[in-house]
């Protein structure tokens, strides 16, 4: 692999990490600046540094994000192993050991967790779906799409809509989460979290109600970014341990 440098491999890892979201904020862990560094050694072992806004951030979400990062990076064909290290957290030792040994959340926390994370993960996937749907519907209504047309729109028709850049991004983000609600109406573009079709006459009220979910998320996001900044000075770009400057927010596409 003479043409591929370590820096290229690290960039691949960063791209894989971009797809991992904080389940609650529904934003990428790299955009949130939770990832502090990526390191690939000569044996194709990947080391990822990971930090959170406070020492007290929920253990379940911390574990989920670290586990998701590990899984995503393991998909890269050249990767031999992945070590995710969470720093300065009340459960850092427990989580780091659990991840290192490839244990599940339940195995890691034993009695403190009385079940797996399936339910809480689904709860937040549904909230993310609602937020993405509300943002998309508001945009489409704003662009002049009629409620009667929107409620009947199929999944494929939505995917094929000719929209501006902002609209296309909202569609892509929404379709990424749309499969969270399956069921009889899986062919429809828009359904509620129960899988039921939406009604044209109540669509505006429906979108308004969803905005409550968004209000919570905005609070969380603003708070998390602010707390992280006070704790770690997030204005200064991170530097990779391999001395190549690595600004997470403005990386050129490789």
């Amino acid at each position: 692999m003479t043409a591929v440098t370590i820096a290229d491999l690290e960039a691949e890892v960063w791209r894989a990490l971009e797809t991992i979201t904080d389940p609650e904020l529904d934003e990428s862990v790299t955009d949130l600046k939770f990832v502090t560094g990526v390191d690939v050694d000569a044996g194709y072992r990947v080391h990822i540094g990971f930090r959170l806004p406070t020492y007290w951030c929920a253990a379940n979400f911390s574990f989920l994000m670290a586990d998701d990062m590990r899984t995503a990076v393991l998909q890269l064909p050249w990767v031999r192993s992945v070590e995710v290290t969470l720093g300065e957290h009340m459960y850092a030792d427990k989580i780091n050991t659990g991840l290192k040994e490839g244990r599940s959340f339940e195995e890691t926390f034993g009695e403190e967790a009385d079940g797996d994370l399936v339910e809480v993960r689904r709860t937040f996937l549904l909230k993310a779906l609602q937020r993405r749907q509300a943002a998309l519907l508001a945009h489409l209504i704003d662009q002049g799409f009629a409620p009667t047309m929107l409620v009947d729109l199929t999944y494929h028709e939505l995917a094929a809509l000719d929209l501006d850049q902002a609209g296309a991004r909202l569609v892509a983000r929404y379709l990424e989460r749309r499969p969270v609600v399956a069921g009889a109406n899986a062919g429809l573009a828009f359904v509620d979290v129960e899988g039921q079709p939406l009604q044209a006459e109540t669509l505006a009220a429906y979108v308004r109600a969803l905005r409550r979910v968004d209000v919570n998320a905005e609070f969380n996001s603003a708070l998390c970014r602010g707390l992280l900044h006070v704790r770690f000075d997030t204005e200064t770009p991170l530097t990779s341990r391999r001395a190549k400057p690595q600004d997470q927010t403005q990386r050129a596409p490789v």
Binding site: C57, A59, N60, M90, E106, F109, A113, G115, E119, V120
Partner: peptide
Amino acid sequence: GPTIIPLNKDS
């Protein structure tokens, strides 16, 4: 507060 057990639930 955010650290209520069980840890797997929405705390």
